[in-house]
Structures are given as C-alpha cells and as structure tokens.
Design a binder for these strands. Structure first.
Length: 575
RNA sequence: GCCCUCGUAGCUUAAUUGGAUAAAGCAGGGCCCUUCUAAGGCCAAGAGUGUAGGUUCGAGUCCUGCCGAGGGCACCA
C-alpha cells in the first residue's frame, strides 16, 4: 500500500538525518499520514516535522525542509513531487502512472478489490440485531441489524473469521408479564401483533394495579423452574416471533450465522453465579445478589433478583463464557443501543474481574436511538413504528418515481417491481448507515424515504448508469491497454479518489464506522457523475482515450458494487 | 441529585480522532437533455461550529464553567 511506503520513506529519512547529525537523537514519533482536504496540498501529507519540532524545540518548517531534502534524494518512483510548506507539512503528490496502475489493479482484482488479509487468523464475534421475542420487529432493531451486518461484511472482507450471533431476547420477566396477560385475558391463539397489544395492555393495567408486576415476576420464576404451562406458553411465543423475524430478515436480505438467544444459556446460569460468589465479586444485598465494583467505579449490578430469578446480566455473562470457550475470539462487538451503555460497561468490567478475558477485546457499538420529534419510541406504551410498514412505504414511493422517470419507461413490469424493492429497501438501509452510529436518528418519513442526494438510490443509479455505458460501448475493458498518462481535471479527480478504497475499508473496521464507507462512495459517485456530464465516453477520440474513459467507468462501477456489497445494498444493472 | 452522550448553514449530516480556506445532501433561487440513464449535472446564496474562558505553532475536535437536548442510575431488557 502506498501509504505504508511513504511511511517507510519518511522513517528512513529521519534515521539518516540523525546518523548524519543533522537531527539530534530522539525516538521517532508515530508517523501519521493523511489525505489533505485541499487537492493543492497533494495526495498524502504528514505533520511529523511539526511533531519533531516540538520534541527538539526547533522551527517546524526548517525540520520539514530538512526531511524533504533527504526524501528528495531518495528513491521514489511512485511520486511526482514532494514539498515542504508552512507551517511544517510535507506533502506528497502521486504520479500519474501510479494512479493509472491502480485502475489495472481494480480490473484485475474485481470483487476482491479493497479486501485484504490483515485479519487472517483472527476471530470476531458480532452480536447484532437481537430483537425481543413477543415484540414486533421495530424500526429500532433495524439499526442494530443493518450496522451489525455491515460490520460483519467489512471484517470478513479484511480476512477475519466472523461469527454473527443474533442474541435474541427470549428470556426474562417480559415473559412473566405475557403469561400473566394471556391467563388474565384468556387468550388461546395469538399473533405477534396481539402479543404486542397484550404487552401494552399489561403495562397500562400494571400502572393501576402494581400487583401485576409481582405476579409477572412470579411467573417468570416459574418459567425458570421449568413449570409446565409457563414453559408451553413461552415456547409458543418464541415460535411465532421467530417466524415473523425470519420474514423480515428475508425481506431485507439479512442472514445471521447463529440465533442462540438468551434462553440457550439456561443451563449455565448456576455455574456463573457460583463463580462470582466464589471469586468474591458478588455479594448479597437487600435479598438480591449484586456485583460490587471496586472503589465504586461503577454502580452495583444485579445478578439475581431477591426471588432468585436471573437478570440479563446473568444471561450476558453466561453468553460471554460460552463464546470465549467455543470460539476463542480476539474481539467481540456488541451492536446494541446506546441506552445499554452502563449495562455493557458493567458486563465488560465483570468479565475483567472474573479474569476471563485474557486476550479478547470487547467493544460496544452504542448506536443512537430512533426518536420521534417528541421523545423515545416505547414498546411498553405501544409507541413503535413497524419496520414492515416503513419498507412498504419506501417501496411504494420508489414505484412512483420509476413511473415518472425517463429510464423507467423502458422497463418491463417485472423489472420495475424488482427495482422498486431493492431501491426502496436500499434507501432505508442507507439511512441507517451513512451517519455516525452514535447519533440519534429522529424518525421522519420524509428523511427515511429520501431517494435522492446522499442516498442509496443515488449510488445505485450511478452504478446502473455505468453499466449502461459499458453495455453500449460493446468493448471489453482490458487492463493492459490502459496507457493514457495525461488526464483532464474530472478524470484526475476520480483517480485521486478511487485508490483510497482499501484504506477506507480498514479504517471503517478500526473505527466500527460504516459511515466512512458511505462518505467515500458518495464522493466517488459524485465525481463520476460530474465527469459523465462533462465528457463523452463512447464517442471519445482517439481510441486510447475511449478505452481509458471506459476503464474509469468500469472501475467506478466495480468499486461501487464492492462498497454496496459491504453495506448490504444491491446494485441493480438497470433502474 | 449523580454518571454518560450529543449541540456544526432553515433542516439532516461530514470533517481522516489536534492540522492547511469547516465539506455535502435536503428545502428554496437560476441554468443544462439534436451526446452514452435528468433518480443526473452546473452556478449563486447560506454557518465560523450552543456559550464564556483556557491549553497549543495550530481547536468543531482536548480541559473548565454555564445553557439546551437525550440516555442511564437494583428487582424491564
């Protein structure tokens, strides 16, 4: 990778300068290389000179010039120019030949372009989606599902062994509540919708009659003890819900390796509890068993309720134990809402206290929550928006646009239907991915159904446009034939962007940020569309120029496709 | 009350985790299909980053106070 080579060059130059006594002895600081925002500052730039200047108390620009001088007498075929500028940056300009070479690499590696083997031998478990049984699949769970899946794809692309686990909320007092409700209101047969209504009704009643909560806890306790009717009702709820979830997953094209769920760990709760007592991490408090953190670093966390029933901490601890043993992961990513920050902190800290995690890193991708303009969605109060409803609306709106669009006229009925589906769903997904995960999203029908500008349809459209051009050109792009070494501004802008893709993928993984990939690809698509509007491709003369422009088109299409793949959005040939 | 996030154009967000002139999209205004997909492109207008200080060669990014929004704080998950 070019970035690494530049880094090595700089390091070498500094060492040589130290040897020549032009620079005093010091430990070479971490060399940060970035892409300058302004094109006039080159393709890469570093601030080492300024960092060193601080270290040795000298003028930054002088140090920069010194390093620059050393660099310039070095050997660097891939660069066109190196410069040292105020206040002390060193800028690197890539040569045209290295930019063209990247196109050849893209055409050669195709769907593998951007992938790498840096994760080889490493395992990551990604805990995502994790809807609660007996509740409908709300818009809130979409974030975890979509972002989690994108992270899964990204890590896999980088050579990691990935294990996706859908940690279903299929155990807990909520079932006690349902069992009470089902008994009380004599339900025999029910759907997920009705279960949701029951849940809401229960909470409404419980406000007037607090005894219901107690009853629910008793029922959950019964369930944990294995009482027959409780067990039967629970099972039924789980089955109905799973069926419903499968429908949703299928619709949005999500496949999760495992769906073990909280109930899977039932047999392990006792052992976990015993271990915490033995290691003197947990103690009795007001009849319950809680973990007290040293120096009150964190608030105490409950392991067992006063009636002896488990809590979600018990279940999460058991889950960690199981995962560590079964998969020996290097990293576990929890793609879970920000409202669980404290809980997961408590969990990670408990794991630390138990001494389980010797070599495993834990990370909580605490995504912001969907909110209404007035507040939070609440299942308890029945204030939710169902995902299916959102998807249906999105597909419907897409249909309307297809009917009105120019390109839509040439499509068959089946094609239109297919496109409406992938574009509509893509738009909803992209809405979750393009902004940083930590931000709350205010639910707004207009925004989530946005089909232009920075959106999935824009990218999909650009891809379809490339495909259309390539098809009409009736010419295979052959990497060897690309010999053009002078570019116009728009061509160069594309070339100066496209090679960043492999770097972006790595960064997205490091920072758990799918939005970086979205930023990158939107930028690239914009640059391509500008180029497309200004320059003729198929009619370009001479022949080499035509081939060159077609190659750019093929490369942009390839990178668009690879990116959309990573974020789980389909790339249509036509739209 | 305590703890944790977040405050950037009218709206929704970027900003390579301390770098160079804060970047886009949407909405609104003007323009571009006798050329390959106009779900596209161009131009103009629009903020100095909630607020007051501080650290730094350099702050949207770090520190402190204040204001505002959201989340969490033992028997929901």
């Amino acid at each position: 990778m070019i970035r690494e080579e530049i880094k090595k060059l700089i390091e070498k130059s500094i060492k040589e300068l130290q040897k020549d006594k032009k620079l005093p002895k010091f430990d070479i600081p971490e060399i940060k290389i970035e892409h300058p925002e302004e094109k006039v500052h080159g393709d890469y730039s570093t601030n080492v000179a300024m960092v060193i200047a601080k270290l040795v108390r000298k003028n930054p620009i002088e140090i920069a010039k010194l390093i620059n001088w050393k660099l310039e007498i070095g050997n660097w075929k891939f660069l066109n120019k190196i410069e040292a500028v105020e206040p002390g940056f060193i800028n690197f300009f890539l040569s045209n030949s290295v930019l063209t070479k990247e196109l050849k690499i893209i055409l050669k590696e195709k769907e593998k372009y951007g992938s790498s083997k840096v994760g080889k031998g490493k395992t990551v478990i990604i805990d995502y989606s994790s809807p609660n049984i007996a509740k409908p699949f709300g818009i809130g769970h979409l974030r975890s599902t979509i972002i989690g899946q994108a992270l899964y794809n990204i890590y896999k692309f980088l050579g990691w062994k990935c294990i996706g686990d859908n940690h279903l909320g299929d155990w807990g007092t909520q079932f006690g509540k349902l069992i009470v409700a089902i008994k009380k209101w004599r339900m025999k047969d029910f759907s997920v919708r009705e279960l949701e209504n029951l849940y809401v009704k229960f909470h409404k009643e419980a406000e007037k009659n607090p005894k219901l909560e107690e009853e629910a806890r008793r029922e959950f306790k019964n369930l944990e003890k294995g009482e027959k009717t409780a067990r039967k009702t629970w099972k039924k709820c789980v089955e109905i819900s799973l069926k419903e979830f499968d429908k949703v997953y299928k619709l949005i094209g999500i496949k999760i390796d495992y769906a073990l769920g909280e109930s899977f760990y039932q047999g392990m709760f006792e052992a976990v509890v015993q271990e915490t007592i033995k290691k003197e991490i947990a103690l009795k408090s007001q009849g319950a068993l809680v973990i007290k953190y040293p120096k009150d670093k964190l608030p105490p966390a409950m392991l067992l309720k006063s009636d002896g029933a488990t809590t979600y901490l018990t279940r999460d601890l058991a889950t960690v134990k199981y995962r560590l043993k079964k998969w020996k992961p290097d990293l576990i990513i929890y793609e879970v809402g920000a409202d669980q920050k404290l809980h997961l902190k408590q969990l990670f800290e408990a794991v630390e206290l138990l001494g389980w995690a010797k070599r495993t890193e834990f990370f909580h991708v605490a995504h912001g929550l969907y909110r209404t303009k007035t507040g939070k969605f609440s299942t308890r109060k029945g204030k939710t928006i169902h995902l299916e409803e959102v998807l249906k609306e999105a597909i419907e709106k897409t249909r309307e646009i297809i009917e009105k669009s120019e390109t839509g006229q040439e499509l068959s009925k089946e094609e239109k239907e297919k496109i409406a589906k992938i574009v509509g769903i893509g738009a909803v997904k992209y809405n979750d991915l393009f902004q940083h995960y930590s931000k709350d999203i205010i639910f707004d029908w207009d925004k989530i159904l946005n089909l232009k500008g920075n959106s999935a349809p824009y990218l999909q459209y650009t891809f379809a446009r490339c495909q259309s051009v390539l098809k009409k050109a009736k010419l295979e792009t052959e990497p060897e034939k690309v010999e053009v070494l002078t570019f116009n501004k728009e061509e160069k802008d594309i070339l100066r962007e496209i090679y960043k893709f492999p770097e972006i993928v790595k960064e997205a993984a490091d920072r758990f940020s799918s939005n970086l990939i979205c930023n990158f690809i939107f930028d690239l698509a914009q640059k391509y569309n500008l180029f497309y509007n200004l320059h003729s491709i198929i009619k370009a003369q001479p022949a080499e120029l035509k081939i060159f422009r077609l190659t750019i088109t093929a490369c942009v299409a390839q990178v668009l496709k690879n990116t959309l793949n990573l974020i789980g959005i389909s790339a249509p040939e036509k739209m």
